[in-house]
Design a protein around this nucleic acid. Structure first.
Lengths: 177, 177
DNA sequence: CTTACTGTACCGTCTGGACGGTCTTGTCAA
DNA sequence: TTGACAAGACCGTCCAGACGGTACAGTAAG
């Protein structure tokens, strides 16, 4: 219903993420994205009338996917502790060698305000976890450590070995009970 | 010996950091920096012959300051546990409402390779801590949580209240023994 | 006839950087 | 003490290129 050949949108978004990751966040030009997506510049601007809308599309897609992943992980997982679910999901995300959100740097460079939806999302998530966690101290430590893991993945600083990452995750799950 | 009026360099670096923080990472132009520093564009390019050199100057200054802060904190602090020293120092850094390194986004946008010195620095720091820490699990949790705190500060997502930050730090110091 | 594009040509703006000129400071011979 | 001079530090202007965005004519499918 959204469009007749709707995979163009997704193709463009994926291409934008690819270009941002491979060519660096500062080189995310509309021409580069159009080429990468196999779409003319006119076609790109047909789907996203401005560069800001493109970025907004990236942010919204990311948040949508994340929320959905959290939801399905929450219902599949036998462990009903939401913090543990979040830890496991995040650790899985960070396994990927290629950070799924490296385009964030492009968005920030374009306009720092693109971060506000992400910030409010995170704040809500934290509040939700706080409501269901038995111990504030454990929650703080675990949540921040996961934030650190995500940060490392984003900056792809491969400081930790795989063993160390596994040890960390199991320690966190321990702390989260 | 480095220069006859060497405060120009520092003034320019400070101006660059200010512009990056206030105008957004994508708006860090040489003109803006020159204006902010009270220096002509020619003068700016005299001190830093290219934009890349300017970024490099920011990175080097940041690393130098950080190392020095670690050193003095290590000798002043009665607690000889290096991890505890690092935790306290980092927590102090993150108290500042204005992240001291928001220019990092500008550097990444310019060229992701500007991160490599910072990455190797962090890796070395982590290795050093690992050498002196009694328990790997505690180190991992503490180090990552601090990394998370730094990340939050950088993205200035004010998710934690001051009380929560304090509670986190004391918990980490507990874990670090 | 509408939707969803392609392809091209173009405009205005911004930016990094090169360049020539200018002011300041230190040095040193007379 | 002074004057000549060179090097250092900085100014102001100009330009080529890249970029975001517009306009528009064409077209293939449903």
């Amino acid at each position: 219903m959204r469009a007749q050949r709707p995979n163009s949108r997704e193709k463009i978004l994926a291409a934008a993420a690819d270009v941002a990751r491979e060519s660096g966040p500062g080189s995310l030009s509309l021409d580069a994205v159009a080429n990468r997506a196999g779409v003319s510049k006119g076609g790109l601007l047909y789907n996203f009338p401005t560069k800001a809308k493109l970025m907004q599309g990236l942010v919204e897609g990311y948040l949508r996917d994340f929320e959905q992943a959290l939801e399905t992980a929450g219902s599949n997982d036998k462990d009903k502790n939401p913090l543990a679910v979040y830890i496991r999901l995040s650790a899985e995300d960070c396994e990927e060698k290629q950070p799924s959100a490296s385009w964030i740097f492009s968005a920030i460079a374009e306009d720092p305000d693109f971060m506000t939806p992400i910030k409010t999302f995170k704040r809500q998530l934290f509040e939700r976890l706080k409501g269901e966690a038995p111990d504030l101290k454990s929650l703080l430590v675990c949540y921040l450590a996961i934030e650190g893991l995500r940060s490392m993945n984003l900056f792809d600083s491969d400081v930790l070995s795989k063993d160390e990452r596994d040890l960390l995750v199991s320690s966190l799950l321990d702390i989260a009970q």
